[in-house]
């Protein structure tokens, strides 16, 4: 089976410059809880950087303070001169401000991470933007192979490492899966030199979010193995059963060909041979 997936080819496209907007957010380190580049957003920026002839604009909507500035500079350190900031107070609905801004700019491609690492993290933002702008949306991208003639060819990540090739008409919104290539390291110098250009926009307070209770995630209870047995014998058997093993077919004293035939049959039944 020849490997069909390779790094996106750098091919000169006929469109002069592809206008790309990468939406970035402030992430949260899973162990220390400090602000950082959000992993999926950074992968999205990496995808945007891998596109030839693309002009990428980093956009962040949210609060701006010392902690979030540190995290946002992480994106600037990937090789950007500036970042557009739609400043919003904490606890506001950023989809409204972003929708308005995107309507104004009219980019060809919007790249975002699948879900945020802070706040509600429902993964709804891209869907709300797509609905508002009336654009197609493709979720869970692993790579963007080619953009030409107003159509993007993308690879979508399926479970178990599989991929699906899709063609999307531009302008479109795509979200990035964790199967996309990892983001490059953030360089300190460009991160310090980069600028955050703040745009003043109206903020829309998220009333519902403020009425909910947020607490650190509790460990989910483990599901117990419930034995629903009609008779005492079944209950005893379930309680005394070994955790695993038994019931397997053992082929001893067979020729290699017979053994191979049995294995082939099982593999065929399971449908893993292509």
């Amino acid at each position: 089976m020849p490997p069909d997936i390779q790094a996106p080819k750098r091919r000169a496209s006929t469109t002069p410059v592809l206008d790309v907007v990468a939406l970035v957010s402030v992430g949260r380190h899973p162990v220390t809880g400090r602000g950082r580049r959000a992993d999926l957003d950074a992968r999205g920026v990496e995808l945007a950087l891998s596109l030839p002839e693309a002009q990428t604009r980093l956009v962040h909507a949210g609060r701006y303070d010392a902690d979030s500035e540190q995290a946002l500079r992480g994106y600037l350190g990937m090789g950007f001169k500036d970042l557009t900031l739609l400043e919003q107070p904490a606890g506001s609905d950023v989809s409204v401000a972003l929708g308005e801004a995107l309507e104004d700019w009219g980019p060809q491609l919007v790249i975002a991470g699948e879900r945020a690492e802070q706040g509600e993290g429902s993964g709804m933002l891209a869907y709300l933007l797509a609905e508002r702008l009336g654009w197609p949306l493709v979720q869970g991208l692993a790579a963007i192979e080619e953009v030409s003639q107003g159509v993007a060819t993308v690879l979508q990540a399926l479970p178990r490492g599989q991929r699906r090739r899709l063609k999307v008409r531009l302008p479109a919104i795509v979200t990035v899966d964790s199967a996309a290539p990892a983001a490059r390291q953030s360089a300190f110098g460009p991160a310090r030199r980069g600028e955050c250009q703040s745009l003043t926009v109206d903020a829309c307070k998220d009333e519902a979010l403020s009425s909910w209770t947020m607490q650190p995630a509790r460990k989910r209870p483990k599901r117990l193995k419930i034995v629903k047995a009609a008779s005492a014998r079944d209950r005893f058997k379930a309680a005394a059963a070994k955790a695993e093993g038994g019931g397997g077919q053992v082929l001893s004293d067979v020729t290699p060909d017979e053994g191979a035939e049995a294995i082939y049959k099982l593999l065929k039944d399971e449908g893993v041979l292509r």
């Binding site: 089976m1 479970p159 899709l166 008409r169």
Partner: peptide
């Protein structure tokens, strides 16, 4: 959509054969 391109919104070109050596062990 703006741009005047006449193509379906999303076209499925089907699953792509993947190099099994490149699949992460945990999800193979």
């Amino acid at each position: 959509l703006p741009g005047g391109v006449d193509a379906p919104w999303i076209e499925d070109l089907g699953q792509v054969p993947v190099d099994p050596a490149g699949v992460a062990l945990s999800e193979a």
